[in-house]
Simulated assay, not measured.
Amino acid sequence: MSHPQDPHRAFFPFGNPFRMILPKGLYLSHKLLALLNAFEDTLAERIRKLKPIDREDVLSLSWMRLAMESLCETHNDIKVLITALELPVCDWDEKWIDVYLDNSVKLLDICIAFSSELSRLNQGHLLLQCVLHNLNSPSPKQFVRARASLDSWRQHINSKNPRLENCFATLDNLTTTLNLPKVKNSAKGKVLMRAMYGVKVVTLFVCSIFASAFSGSAKRLMDLQVLETCSWAEAFTELQAFVNGGIRNMVSSGRVMVLRELEAVDITVKKLYPMIQDGVGPVEAEAFQISISDMGKRTEKLSQGLDVLAKEVDSFFQIVLSGRDALLCNFRVGSETSNVEEQQVSR
């Protein structure tokens, strides 16, 4: 695992991941090849659509929503592919199942961490609402109360979420499973493992961006090196370079790495705070009201964006959870069927 202070982290460190999963001489039928090509073409198109026009849009809640929405669709695609492959769970290698179940638990933990951070950020909305309420109040103590609420908001926003720190260790651990177990004489298994590789690469990339954005640090961004023979590899490499490069350039220029909508609110807070502290004279009255109006609009935009993104993260959580439950259920059914057949043969 790379050290936290390293500016770049390159993966895959274990060599060619398909040396293990693409046995020589294993024939793919036209049907299986068509399924794999369709899956990878769709994945490539989704990756291309994630490239923002402006690099700074990456740290916006709207782009993050699109990224999580795309991730949900990709994970749904792998479910559809598994069904189309008609590969019973009982035919899965035990190592595949172990890796899948272990990875799904880690993804669920990451989702919980992201949800907790979105909830924490949204809690600050109440403090800002108190500020707006007090500033629109005729009470002589309005400035004192508003200033106290702003101080509380700043303290709240600048506090750290310990769950986010755990995300980076989890993501590092997940990269080690990109080198999947060997596929033993199974063409369908070959297709499944290759498709899962693409899903895991995109999942790691998106979750890395989220964890870095929420923590406010670009030091832990991942730079994944992917197999060039995948049809989506070029689109992914271009997206990753554009996104990670943009974030690092922003940080190197001296800007604090925060969500754009949160930064917009903070700008209005910094304008309002000295006015509240020193008082507002007749000359500053108009500028003061404009700042209050701006903060109200930006606060509402931030809150709405957090709510929408939280719903997408919850959707991803449910998709991962349902996929895990379905696998376990099918595995139990397959095991029970095998046991019944063995008992009938023994009689």
Rank of each mutant, 00 (worst) to 15 (best):
residue 332 R to V: 13
residue 174 L to F: 06
residue 46 R to Q: 13
residue 92 W to P: 01
residue 205 F to Y: 05
residue 199 V to K: 11
residue 263 E to M: 11
residue 236 F to Q: 03
residue 269 V to E: 05
residue 245 G to I: 05
residue 266 D to M: 12
residue 195 A to E: 08
residue 176 T to D: 14
residue 67 A to N: 06
residue 340 V to C: 00
residue 247 I to V: 11
residue 78 I to P: 00
residue 71 L to V: 12
residue 148 A to K: 00
residue 279 G to M: 04
residue 166 N to E: 14
residue 275 M to H: 06
residue 142 Q to P: 02
residue 234 E to F: 12
residue 313 V to T: 01
residue 268 T to E: 03
residue 147 R to K: 04
residue 333 V to T: 13
residue 69 E to Q: 14
residue 230 C to Y: 09
residue 179 N to W: 15
residue 335 S to C: 08
residue 68 M to C: 08
residue 141 K to T: 15
residue 43 L to I: 07
residue 113 A to L: 15
residue 306 L to E: 04
residue 210 F to N: 01
residue 87 L to S: 03
residue 61 L to M: 00
residue 127 L to I: 10
residue 272 L to K: 08
residue 92 W to I: 01
residue 186 S to T: 06
residue 200 K to W: 15
residue 88 P to F: 08
residue 108 L to H: 12
residue 24 K to Y: 04
residue 269 V to T: 09
residue 279 G to F: 12
residue 316 F to N: 02
residue 41 D to K: 07
residue 242 F to P: 02
residue 295 M to W: 07
residue 24 K to G: 06
residue 99 V to L: 15
residue 256 V to P: 02
residue 258 V to E: 03
residue 286 E to H: 11
residue 218 A to L: 04
residue 98 D to F: 05
residue 108 L to S: 12
residue 337 T to S: 04
residue 110 I to W: 00
residue 105 V to M: 06
residue 343 Q to N: 10
residue 19 R to I: 02
residue 138 P to R: 07
residue 29 S to N: 12
residue 209 I to G: 05
residue 36 L to R: 14
residue 204 L to H: 01
residue 43 L to R: 07
residue 73 E to Y: 01
residue 45 E to I: 09
residue 231 S to E: 11
residue 203 T to G: 10
residue 277 Q to N: 04
residue 220 R to G: 05
residue 321 L to A: 03
residue 316 F to C: 09
residue 269 V to N: 13
residue 37 N to Q: 15
residue 239 L to T: 04
residue 134 N to L: 04
residue 15 G to Q: 11
residue 313 V to A: 01
residue 40 E to D: 15
residue 23 P to V: 07
residue 118 L to G: 13
residue 262 L to P: 02
residue 274 P to Y: 07
residue 58 V to Y: 07
residue 35 L to F: 09
residue 37 N to W: 14
residue 163 R to W: 00
residue 20 M to P: 00
residue 321 L to N: 05
residue 202 V to F: 07
residue 85 L to P: 03
residue 198 G to E: 09
residue 290 I to L: 09
residue 289 Q to V: 04
residue 176 T to H: 15
residue 331 F to W: 14
residue 34 A to M: 12
residue 136 N to A: 15
residue 320 V to Q: 13
residue 281 G to H: 07
residue 225 Q to V: 08
residue 244 N to G: 01
residue 288 F to D: 06
residue 345 V to P: 00
residue 186 S to Q: 05
residue 81 L to M: 02
residue 341 E to P: 01
residue 44 A to H: 10
residue 86 E to D: 03
residue 127 L to Q: 13
residue 38 A to E: 09
residue 103 N to G: 09
residue 16 N to R: 10
residue 190 K to V: 07
residue 219 K to M: 11
residue 179 N to R: 15
residue 312 E to C: 02
residue 343 Q to F: 08
residue 263 E to R: 13
residue 258 V to F: 01
residue 65 R to S: 03
residue 249 N to D: 14
residue 59 L to A: 09
residue 50 L to T: 02
residue 85 L to C: 01
residue 298 R to I: 03
residue 72 C to S: 12
residue 130 C to Q: 09
residue 235 A to G: 10
residue 90 C to A: 10
residue 133 H to N: 08
residue 146 A to Q: 03
residue 40 E to S: 14
residue 157 I to D: 04
